[in-house]
Design a protein around this nucleic acid. Sequence first.
RNA 1: GCCGCCGUAGCUCAGCCUGGAAGAGCGGCAGGCUGUGGACCUGUAGGUCGCGGGUUCAAAUCCCGCCGGCGGCCCCA
Length: 434
Amino acid sequence: MSKRRFKVLRGLRDLLPEDVEKLKYVISVIREIFKLYGYQEIMTPTIEAFSLFEKKAGEELRHRMYKFIDMGGREVALRPEITPSVARFYINHMLSFQKPIRLGYIANCFRYDEPQYGRYREFWQGGFELIGSSNPEADVEILNIASTLMKRLGFSDYYIKLNHVGIIKGILNSEKVPEIVQNRILGLFDKTRYDEAIQLLKSENVTDECLNIIREVINLKGNNINQIIDSAEQYICKYSLAMEALLNLKEILSLLEKSELKIPILLDLGFARGLEYYTGIIFECFSSKNNRLALGGGGRYDTLIELFGGPPTPAVGYAPGIDRIILALNEEKIEIRTEKHRKTIVIPLSREFVPYAIKIASNLRGFDIPVEVEVMGRDLKKALSYANARNFDYAIIIGSTEVKEEKITLKDLNKGEQYKVSIEEAINMIKTSK
RNA sequence: GCCGCCGUAGCUCAGCCUGGAAGAGCGGCAGGCUGUGGACCUGUAGGUCGCGGGUUCAAAUCCCGCCGGCGGCCCCA
């Protein structure tokens, strides 16, 4: 006992039974949505080629990957997210399938961040990827899924922060700002370091007029959506690529409106995300009561599959952060429905009845009744005390009279009553109780 | 990567300021005479006081470094 003990590594954690119950609950809600929206669940490997993630991960994430050389000399990484794996998966297995393809997943991801509130080095993500459609209804479906999940989890007050990367990228493209610099600028926006971003633009010889436009555009934010779109339109009207993006955003928002989905949107044209593969809408989900953590995020990535060697294929996706959802649910005291079933313990009164106890237990399990056998050789008093502490609902007591009469004593631990009955009667009583 | 607070039994913590023989509650285990649990009683195990170094006759206690936990920045899930 005094030996130096192993501990979990920094930022990683063991999940206790109650933690697993919570995880299972959130996963079950996500899986309901897979089913309702027709997403087929897949699994991909925890480890992939480093280059798969490296390409479009963004500066931030690239440095935070668990990366190593495997025994075959390959440069590999623990997945920091799943979208690139799904893009690869699609190319490897589903090119001949009719579109659209709807794929879902539940997976653990790894990032070498400094651990803190809501941030661990291993965390759980769910995911929805809708592949094959560039139409606004695809974007709307993904936003609707994000919203439905929040609703189904019981968040009473939540919102989705939304933007379209095409707006800023469109302006920068027209100004001939190289893509590497564009990514850096969006990265700075992401960190809300707008001043530095502007400085960087200046050094790229972007005109003052354009800088002013960008300054104005990234300040547009709120839920007065039409007003924001109108203002943006006025600022960027001469940038055709940016206008195209804005119109796309407008179309998506209008479809949201007309289909009466009532999704709370916070439009924020200065909002950016760390991943570099986004080409269209980007968004993050927040609970209003605790908006320091994004509970999920996503966006459109129309060029990623092509970049990985597939045909040009538009796609849009959303990934809820399961651990953070659990944190938020706890904090807001929203009920987490954990599975509860009635438990029965079989207690042999002495060692000679152990075989009979095992037989009875096995018999009951055959009828789908969860049963544990007392295996500590405890006397009845201790065994009942244990059963009580561990919230058993029934105890089945086996002693000489029971064996002789071919019956068992069934004790209802909640009511405190007990009956001497046949096994069939016991099964019936346990099964019909609620 | 940077900053702040913390680190004593399985858990929650007291003791540390003002150095001088490791404590409590909970939990665990064992009893409380024969086959009956739930806020009962008794007993008992369990600690290189995070790790390493320094100061001192003497360090859980003072000083330094490291590690770890929590949180903040940054960023994300």
